[in-house]
Simulated scan of single mutants.
Amino acid sequence: MRELKIIKPGLLTTVQDAGRKGFQQYGVPVSGVMDHYAFEMANLLVGNDAAEAVLEATLLGPEIVFEADGLLAVTGGDLGAVFNGEPLPLWQAVPVTSGDKLAFKGIRSGCRCYIAISGGLQVPVIMGSRSTYTRGNLGGHQGRALKAGDNLSVGDSPLPAAALTQPAEKRQITPAYQYAKEITLRVVPGPQEDAFSTQGLETFYQQPYTVTNECDRMGYRLEGTPIAHEAGADIISDGIAMGAVQVPGHGMPIVMMADRQTTGGYTKIANVISADLPLMAQAKPGDILRFTKVTVEEAQHIWAARQQEMAAVKKALALNPREETPPAHENTPSAHENTPYRKELFRFRRGGRPYALVVEELEE
């Protein structure tokens, strides 16, 4: 049986994937990974589907013994990974065989790392996801953070044997993010921006804020200059997106994250853009945050550019030949076969099942 054995669990190590989507109307949080970029890159490096389940470790990493052959990749924050006693390069896939050991010496940068192995972690799928929501004792491994002595099953590796002998340069990437102690986050205006005074808005965009010790997968409490409201901080509860910046009556912002509640009754001054959420996810107590405003259109362009970069990385890695085989319908003549067009393929999973979507963009 292909397994991982947890010798030491670290501070907080959980099984996570892209999240439990489609159930917020029932009060079920999305959960899933905090840093989607590092998560997807870890999976792509080892030849998995980008949404396969991985381990997310926070601040202090686990000690793991592998009883599965394949590829291993660690991405995200630098928690001092060592593999069989030697420093392990991040953002690179390395061959792993039964008996190999992964451990961590201590944090150097960032806050969270992602541990992926070819085949992915095979915990039960609950509501379409393998992610762990510890507050609800839901998903992952028995609905909780890992403990010493836990064993996790690993799926069959999707890789051909030749992938394990590829040169190192074919199994590594240069990450798009660097994790610093001072972070500038781009945000779009929140739905209650008009609830804040002019002075309050100037404070938010001009003053630095420090991440407090009250920061976890649910949200980050910040401290700094209080943000003034125009009238009050309470609203009729409405939905909360990941990266929403709530400001209660005391004026100190709270950035909501993966395990956030589905609705909330505090004014939201802004929302961190999707492309910068990985930076927010890697912030830790004592880090300094600054916020700068962009338009929704600018945020969309930034996100589209990031997606193109990730598509290029996926193509360059090309660890799994099956990923390069187009679905049958791509060879079917298009209704616009006499018209120049660009074709783009998107692969995704929903409810645990793989899908492929082909988008054809006509060129006028």
Rank of each mutant, 00 (worst) to 15 (best):
L159G: 13
L159H: 15
P160A: 15
P160Q: 14
A162D: 15
A162F: 11
A163R: 10
A163L: 14
A163F: 14
A163C: 14
L164K: 13
T165W: 09
T165D: 14
Q166D: 13
Q166W: 15
P167L: 08
P167A: 09
P167T: 10
P167W: 06
A168M: 10
A168S: 13
A168H: 05
A168C: 04
E169T: 08
K170A: 15
K170W: 11
R171T: 06
R171S: 07
R171Q: 08
R171C: 09
I173G: 09
I173W: 12
I173H: 10
I173S: 08
T174V: 15
T174C: 13
P175T: 06
P175C: 07
P175Y: 06
P175Q: 05
P175W: 06
A176Q: 12
A176F: 13
A176P: 02
Y177F: 15
Y177D: 08
Q178M: 12
Q178F: 11
Q178K: 13
Q178C: 12
Q178T: 15
Y179L: 10
Y179V: 09
A180K: 13
A180L: 14
A180G: 09
K181N: 14
K181V: 10
K181F: 05
E182A: 12
I183A: 12
I183R: 15
T184A: 09
T184R: 12
T184S: 09
L185I: 11
L185G: 10
L185W: 07
R186H: 14
R186F: 08
R186D: 07
V187C: 10
V188A: 08
P189D: 10
G190P: 04
G190H: 05
G190M: 03
P191S: 01
Q192W: 02
E193S: 03
D194N: 05
D194R: 04
D194P: 00
D194V: 00
A195G: 00
A195K: 01
S197G: 02
T198W: 01
Q199M: 00
G200H: 00
G200P: 01
G200F: 01
L201M: 04
L201E: 00
L201W: 02
E202G: 01
E202C: 00
T203D: 02
F204G: 02
F204D: 02
F204T: 02
F204V: 03
Q206N: 03
Q206M: 02
Q207H: 02
Y209Q: 04
T210W: 08
V211S: 04
V211H: 06
V211R: 06
T212K: 11
T212A: 12
T212V: 11
N213E: 14
N213Y: 11
N213F: 10
N213K: 15
N213C: 09
E214W: 11
E214Y: 12
C215P: 04
C215T: 13
D216Q: 07
R217L: 12
R217T: 07
M218I: 07
M218K: 05
M218F: 04
G219C: 06
G219N: 04
G219R: 06
Y220D: 07
Y220Q: 08
R221Q: 13
R221E: 10
R221M: 11
R221K: 14
L222C: 09
G224A: 04
T225Y: 02
P226G: 03
P226D: 03
P226L: 04
A228V: 08
A228P: 03
A228H: 04
